[in-house]
Design a protein around this nucleic acid. Sequence first.
DNA 1: CCGATTTTCATGCGTTTGCATGTATCGACG
DNA 2: CGTCGATACATGCAAACGCATGAAAATCGG
Lengths: 156, 156
Amino acid sequence: MAADGNESHIRLAAETWESLFRAQVAVMRRLQAGAAFRKVAINEYDVLFTLSRCPSGWLRLNELNDHVLLSQSSLSRLVERLEKRGLVVRMAAPDDGRGVLLKLTEEGAALQKEIGREHVRDISSLVGPALTAAEQRELQRLTEKLRHSVGARPAK
Amino acid sequence: MAADGNESHIRLAAETWESLFRAQVAVMRRLQAGAAFRKVAINEYDVLFTLSRCPSGWLRLNELNDHVLLSQSSLSRLVERLEKRGLVVRMAAPDDGRGVLLKLTEEGAALQKEIGREHVRDISSLVGPALTAAEQRELQRLTEKLRHSVGARPAK
DNA sequence: CCGATTTTCATGCGTTTGCATGTATCGACG
DNA sequence: CGTCGATACATGCAAACGCATGAAAATCGG
């Protein structure tokens, strides 16, 4: 195989990522413009959503940080705001004195559901017409595979 | 078809988007941690990159704004900073007194290339092992289709 | 068991962001 | 040609962010 066999492989990966990134930007722009995000910012909703999907209801702050594209300090203050608004409650972790557990309040859960419904409608009106069901399933499969390969944990 | 045929279609779209979004977050986290983004922030690099791909060299500020996930005012100030650092130059648009054209300086072009090379290596080391070449091509096709369907222009 | 290192979260501080608004130009229409 | 709404960019200001650091608890090594 020629030397540029490797080169073209590198380029393919870069182009694939750029395409994925641009698609994400395009969709995100439309979602942010939607009425669903008047009450809470996108990152705040992301936290509420992640908490709503948590089986036990309680989630550690550092686990939450793996899901969200935010620094640790920014997440700390974001959660502080959510708590002030009465949407989540904090609790010291029972098995680890350093840790903090989070849970949605009833009000927080209600707000998440309300916004979530609207959000899901916006999403399906964007993604639904764009791709066939089979294509959506394939896109889901590929992005899941990519995410799991990359791993949730960054080096630091 | 049953009523929940539509419901499941909505859910599929939402799950597809969530998967795409999480993959983007996971990859972006790793990229931001890389050494490539010590000198310029990710949004700043995105601007330099977009300018480097522009055939004429000059690009209108409002067109740039379609590519980047930033408000108009934030982009205005981001460009102001890049100009102060000597990476881009501004020029009044010849055919439109309101418009502003942007171009990379030689220093800006050199920096973009330098960071771009490193960035591309980081990307390929993340995406390359995750998906086969055929899968990458398919992912690229699907995300391009999604982006074009959604359209670059948000409502406002 | 004790000191050193690591992990987890909070906080000070300068920077960046978005919203609302201001200014200038463009385009349409009578 | 003058007026009126729309568009493009800049700016004041408060909110949100990341980096560096601090404090408290856990973990490791002798």
